[in-house]
Every structure is written in structure tokens, then in C-alpha cells.
């Protein structure tokens, strides 16, 4: 589903952050990308989702055989690429529910499905809300406005559940969560695992991986993937730290 080959990218000040990333993710798989601060984890998430501010200087990314990097961010989203934000953005005055419905209808339109009316939408929403134990009041508030850290992250996973993406990239979804919230979010992610969906989890810590057990674990260091393995690699990292893989560039 996702094939990254020799990906190089730099940020606005010219510094090269990604220095030849290679990665292949198949449908149905869950991959974890781990690494120390500054290793390029968030840059990778940004480049894949089309966030402005990055320049790809070399390499390519294929998504379902298409040149992902040639697609604008909104087109990628409508094609099924979802990014769960590390820092979900507040949009005052825009009702969370309204926002989600607009997003869902944009995605559905792309898939050739009809737009959902308010009634159908509400029905779909209620089913997913249960999954993440989100109260309906959250829907009536402004997008991420006044949400606690845990609510923001749960809202991201809730959006993911509603939008039903093919490729989900979770950027530090575990950061800032207490243990209860972490378990709740993990349950949500696990429920969304499926044969047609690929999930890439970006994380600094191993603890999320106790609840969402990945098929593959990759260590990103100084802009390259330096080691890959199965879930055991994550546990190993937890004990030894990232020291063995060198500090960030």
C-alpha cells in the first residue's frame, strides 16, 4: 500500500532531516516507527500527509501505486490517507460535528458515495462514539476548543473511525495521555485494525505498543531507518534506549 524509497527531505532553513528513508507497508499491517527526538519522525509524518514547509529533494513515495508526493494534502486525505495529529488544531466557532460531517462528505464524494444527511450521520456517529467512550457533548463544541489533552487525542481517533482511511499515520498519539486515556485510545486503534487498512504509529515510547502490538517495528535515527524487527524490538529498545543507534543529527 505504501512504498517509500530513498526519501530525502529538508525543512525551510535548508537542513536535511530525512536522509534516505526506505519503508514498505502492506494493507492489514501495523508498523511502529520509533526513534529519539529529532530523528525525523514528525518530518516523515508531515511529508507523507502533505504538510507545507517540507521539501522533498530525492526519492519517492508510492501510495497504492500512485505518486503520493504529487498530490495536494486534501487530495491525499480524500484518497484515504489520514494523519492523527500530535497537536490537534483548534478551530473556534466551528462545531466539531459539523466539521466532521464536512470532512466525511468530502471523502465520500471522492469515493463516489452519496453525501450523508444529518440523520444518517448522527447514527454513524453514535456507533463510533461508544467505541471511544466519547460523550455527545464533545460533538457540539468547537473543533478541539477547550478539549483536554486526552479528549483531543480521542477525538483524532474518533475522526479516523468516521473517515475510514486506508492508511492511517498516528503521530505521537500516545504523548500526553494518562494510562486510562492511553488504554481507551488503544482500544480504538485496535478496533480499527483490519485487512484493508495499514496503520503507521509514530512514537517515542514503547508503552503504546503494549496495547497496540505492531507487526513491524522500525528505528528511525538521524533521518534513516537503521533497524527493523518485530514487536520484540520495541521491548528491547525500552530497556537499552536509543543510545545504541546514535544521537540525532
Amino acid at each position: 500500500m505504501l512504498e517509500i524509497g530513498n526519501l530525502h527531505a529538508r525543512i525551510a532553513d535548508g537542513r536535511e532531516i530525512l536522509k534516505g528513508v526506505d519503508l514498505a507497508v502492506k494493507a492489514g499491517e501495523v508498523h511502529a516507527i520509533m526513534g529519539p527526538n529529532g530523528s525525523g519522525k514528525s518530518t516523515l509524518a508531515g511529508v507523507l500527509s502533505g504538510k507545507p514547509g517540507y521539501e522533498v529533494t530525492e526519492g519517492q513515495v508510492l501510495y497504492e501505486g500512485r505518486d503520493l508526493l504529487a498530490m495536494p494534502a486534501d487530495e491525499r486525505a480524500r484518497a484515504g490517507v489520514f494523519l492523527a495529529f500530535q497537536y490537534p488544531v483548534e478551530i473556534p466557532g466551528v462545531n466539531n460535528m459539523y466539521f466532521l460531517r464536512a470532512a466525511l462528505n468530502a471523502v465520500r464524494k471522492q469515493r463516489g458515495e452519496s453525501e450523508m444527511d444529518a440523520g444518517q450521520f448522527l447514527k454513524a456517529v453514535r456507533a463510533k462514539l461508544k467505541l471511544l467512550e466519547i460523550g455527545e457533548d464533545l460533538l457540539q463544541r468547537g473543533v478541539n476548543v477547550g478539549f483536554s489533552g486526552g479528549e483531543k487525542k480521542r477525538n483524532e481517533i474518533f475522526q479516523m473511525a468516521m473517515l475510514d482511511p486506508k492508511l492511517a499515520i498516528l503521530d505521537e498519539t500516545d504523548s500526553g495521555l494518562d494510562i486510562d486515556a492511553l488504554q481507551m485510545v488503544s482500544r480504538g486503534i485496535n478496533a480499527l485494525r483490519g485487512p484493508d487498512r495499514a496503520i503507521v504509529m509514530i512514537t517515542h515510547y514503547q508503552r503504546l505498543l503494549n496495547y497496540v502490538v505492531p507487526d513491524r517495528v522500525h528505528v528511525l535515527s538521524a533521518g534513516r531507518i537503521v533497524k527493523s524487527g518485530d514487536a520484540a524490538l520495541a521491548r528491547e529498545l525500552e530497556e537499552t534506549g536509543y543510545g545504541a543507534y546514535g544521537d540525532a543529527a
Partner: peptide, 23 residues
Amino acid sequence: QMFYCQQRGLSKEDALSLIVNGF
């Protein structure tokens, strides 16, 4: 804000309109 909306599938124009209407 713009990127957040676009990442959820909204076009640039729709994103702007959504944010402004919210305001």
C-alpha cells in the same frame, strides 16, 4: 488550521470558508 482541515479532506477554499464561518 488550514492544514488540519485539508488533511481531513477539505479543499483550500472549503477550509477557509469553514474557518471564517465559524468565526
